[in-house]
Design a protein around this nucleic acid. Structure first.
Lengths: 343, 343
DNA sequence: GTGAAAGCGCTAACAT
DNA sequence: ATGTTAGCGCTTTCAC
């Protein structure tokens, strides 16, 4: 991949070895057809032999395209960012585009520093990513001379954004429960000030024809325990299924139900949201849940960025990426026939 | 940050506006002192006013330093990679160095593609990262013309590597248990073919003066349940504490103990390993565990890379980064006085 | 079909 | 102290 003698081979070396001029070598390699076939083959062969690879910096200087983009995230934890980054990379690596990852840790100073470094490096575009949909960047991305795409974040109306389709995902969950014969479905979820939480709750209600009960609370397993405790110590009829706004909450719910001697899914079925493997797969029983397709979301964002950098038109607005239902054991796969089926 | 008229301001624009030559402008900005103070101030002021920022591509072409490095990881999940990347970035961003993140997904083709793109972009160095210490890169990094640093991976002897100090971490855990008065400490851990597992087990045995019992098994919570079942259904005296090789295993252990009517930490104390927040903080009781300091590990790797790219000597070999004990509730904080203290 | 020359934006000799 | 010149590695007119 490199010449044995330190410095990489340049096009000059190729030209020299082939006995042609630099420009002919360039023509031959980039195959503009304006070269003699014999010469072209010879040059190409020599280039390969001495391991010539064009210097992307030099190319970028001339073409004004660095073939690199920046990704700015406030997530230090990685659960959301890495799958998305992998998706972005996957879409771009075949086009020779690499991704700078910048973790701002929610620090405006860091965000500014990273942004400046990216602009200095002439990135072709920037993808902004957050840990929650309604979190704004800590720097102004609206007046940049390069395209900006929002992934798992909602940019201004004129920009291009990709977010999970929380509405469809929640509907998927509820309809799955309905199809299994459950009718008294409860929704235990996160804090109402999260956009995603409100959307999932709205979709849940809509799927139930406007009925249903939503319990908002903090994220985390504790809230699952607490919520279960509340519903089991009150007089009303018990739910026969619970749709949770996150896998962590669902895990708390399932553990609490077991503590109370109720069995999942036969007494109460549970569906989660996130498909966060370490939680969903380890819950007993393993969690039926909604996968947000983060890698696919990243891939889509990457493809959009590719189009933008190539000057192709991309429709502005928010793109909702479909969620998927992942069926595990916490929610019986049998259709109907449940004892608590009557509403 | 940018001129209003599309293209970024170049040093030419600065020179023009200041009425000096390009090289004088360059001198003034890079303050080699070889400029008249008045001119320098004027140039600097104008540069700031029109928002001039040097083109890093052009600079890199000349200086042969791109001020960017590549990070190659096989982790799609992010639990290890993102904290480390954040640490690397943190160490480098102040020096204007940005980080390309390349997720290979364990695919050699992807790894090769990414590596080529990085080399083409003239990265100043490459940091290789893996999800387990003894995992080798899918591409040959040994004959690269640029420095390579291994983070959470062990490179060849001649290279620079940073790994968690599993030995010290495990000792920390066991000594903590000993200091609380526990004597019959059991070790339930992962598969023996993991280097980290063997090290933790060895340190555990050493801390116990060569005594102790190690139960190897698959990662995951199930193994925790299974292992607890085994020790509770056999005749020998019960352990009064369990040191687990991962937080997930520890969670399984704690849940299983509770199922068997044993209480943590009063009957049996438990310590985990990883400080993986979603697991450790949600366990009931919350998990006392070992934090591997991944961000610090990344920071150290970043600093080493910085030195290497500046031609400073860096000692080759493996650097062990100290782990930290994080005390939560699964392991009483009281000293001695435990009922089971007698060995 | 091929090569000489200009230039991307910048820095660093070397003159002046 | 400042300006002129050359050149980093590459692509691209434009002569020949």
């Amino acid at each position: 991949m490199t010449t044995s003698h330190g410095r990489r081979a340049t096009i000059r070396d190729v030209a020299l070895a082939a006995g042609v001029s630099i420009s002919t070598a360039s023509n031959a390699l980039n195959g503009q057809g304006r070269t003699n076939a014999e010469t072209r083959d010879r040059v190409k062969h020599i280039a390969e032999k001495i391991g010539f690879r064009p210097n992307a910096l030099a190319r970028g200087l001339l073409s004004r395209r660095s073939h690199s983009i920046g990704m700015i995230t406030n997530d230090t934890y990685g659960r959301l960012t890495l799958p998305m980054t992998a998706g972005v990379s996957e879409a771009l690596v075949d086009h020779g585009v690499s991704v700078f990852l910048c973790a701002t840790n929610n620090d405006p100073r860091l965000a500014r520093l990273h942004l400046e470094a990216l602009l200095d490096k002439q990135v072709d575009g920037i993808i902004f990513t957050a840990t929650r949909l309604d979190l704004a960047p800590q720097v102004d991305l609206s007046r940049l001379p390069i395209p900006v795409v929002y992934a798992f974040a909602e940019g201004p109306d004129t920009s291009v954004s990709f977010v999970p389709d929380d509405h469809q995902g929640a509907r998927l969950a509820v309809e799955h429960l309905l199809s299994l014969g459950h009718r008294r479905i409860l929704h235990i979820t996160g804090p109402e000030d999260f956009a995603a939480v409100r959307r999932r709750a709205a979709a849940y209600r809509a799927s139930l024809g406007g009925e249903g009960e939503v319990m908002f609370g903090p994220w985390g397993e504790d809230w699952g325990h607490e919520a279960v405790h509340r519903i089991l110590t009150r007089p009303e009829p018990r739910p026969d299924a619970i749709f949770c706004g996150s896998d962590e909450t669902a895990r708390g719910v399932i553990d609490a139900l077991r503590d109370h001697g109720l069995s999942v899914p036969s007494d109460i079925a549970v569906v989660g949201f996130d498909n966060w493997h370490v939680v969903a797969a380890q819950t007993r029983p393993a969690l039926t849940t909604i996968d947000m397709g983060l890698k696919e979301l990243g891939r889509r964002a990457g493809l959009a960025m590719l189009d933008l950098t190539q000057g192709k038109p991309v429709a502005s607005g928010i793109n909702y990426i479909a969620c998927e239902l992942v069926v595990r054991a916490s929610c019986g796969t049998d259709l109907a026939g449940q004892s608590l089926m009557s509403s």
